[in-house]
Simulated assay, not measured.
Amino acid sequence: MQTILKKINLTIILLIVTVSVCSAQKNKKANNDTEAWRYEIEAVQTGTQGSYLIKVWSYSKKPDVAIEQAKKNAVHGIIFRGFIGSQSVAGQKPLANNGNLEVEKEDFFKSFFANGGKYMKFVSMSHDGAVAAGDRMKVGKEYKVGVVVSVNVSTLRKDLEDAGVIKALGSGFN
């Protein structure tokens, strides 16, 4: 009986280790895909007060990795790129006015955008992260996947201001 329990315990431990290794490899792949910050953002509709509802197009060899990275890409885009508006939704400038901010505050943004990092506090998937049929396409050897997300820009701005990463809106008038 003890031999059977030992075999079961060993099997469970091996299963846990295997799942952990696979998860770590997936996160590494996702980070490699994100390092180039290859994505596109488009306005979807006006969100609730202080938030933007946007579609983020992310690229990866695996569609599930692109979906996973959409949140990170959305927050990065709001901070550093902004987005062009549509007929019904106004475009937005990036929160950062300094084009070198990402390099100047590299230590801050490295931890901010780490897996499970602080960026997660400001973004959520819309429609439970479901991807419409036309929002997943094969482009060469990789996928381009569009995911609609909501970014709480007012809270994000406040957090970046409090951390001294960006200047407060009214600071130019002092």
Results as ranks from 00 to 15, higher is better:
Ile4Lys: 14
Ile13Leu: 13
Leu14Asp: 14
Leu15Met: 13
Leu15Phe: 11
Ile16Asp: 02
Thr18Met: 13
Val19Tyr: 12
Ser20Ile: 07
Ser20Cys: 10
Ala24Ile: 09
Ala24Asp: 12
Asn27Cys: 03
Ala30Asp: 12
Ala30Glu: 14
Asn31Leu: 11
Arg38Gln: 15
Arg38Cys: 12
Arg38Pro: 08
Arg38Gly: 09
Gly47Ala: 10
Gln49Leu: 15
Gly50Arg: 07
Ser51Cys: 11
Lys55Ser: 15
Val56Thr: 08
Ser58Met: 14
Ser58Gly: 15
Tyr59Gln: 02
Pro63Ile: 06
Pro63Thr: 07
Ile67Thr: 11
Gln69Lys: 10
Ala70Leu: 06
Lys71Val: 02
Lys71Phe: 03
Lys71Asp: 11
Lys72Ile: 05
Ala74Lys: 02
Val75Gln: 00
His76Ile: 03
Gly77Ile: 03
Ile79Gly: 03
Gly82Phe: 02
Phe83Ile: 11
Gly85Arg: 06
Gly85Ser: 08
Lys93Pro: 00
Lys93Thr: 08
Gly99His: 06
Gly99Asn: 10
Asn100Tyr: 13
Leu101Gln: 05
Glu102Gln: 07
Glu104Val: 09
Glu106Thr: 15
Phe108Asp: 03
Phe112Asp: 01
Phe112Lys: 01
Val123Leu: 07
Val123Ala: 12
Ser124Gly: 06
His127Ser: 14
Ala132Gln: 12
Ala133Lys: 08
Met137Val: 15
Lys138Cys: 01
Gly140Pro: 02
Lys141Tyr: 05
Lys141Arg: 01
Tyr143Pro: 11
Val145Arg: 00
Gly146Lys: 01
Gly146Thr: 00
Val148Glu: 03
Val149Asn: 02
Val153Lys: 12
Leu156Tyr: 08
Arg157Lys: 15
Arg157Tyr: 13
Asp159Gly: 04
Asp162Pro: 08
Ala163Pro: 11
Gly164Phe: 08
Lys167Trp: 07
Leu169Lys: 11
Gly172Leu: 06
Asn174Phe: 05
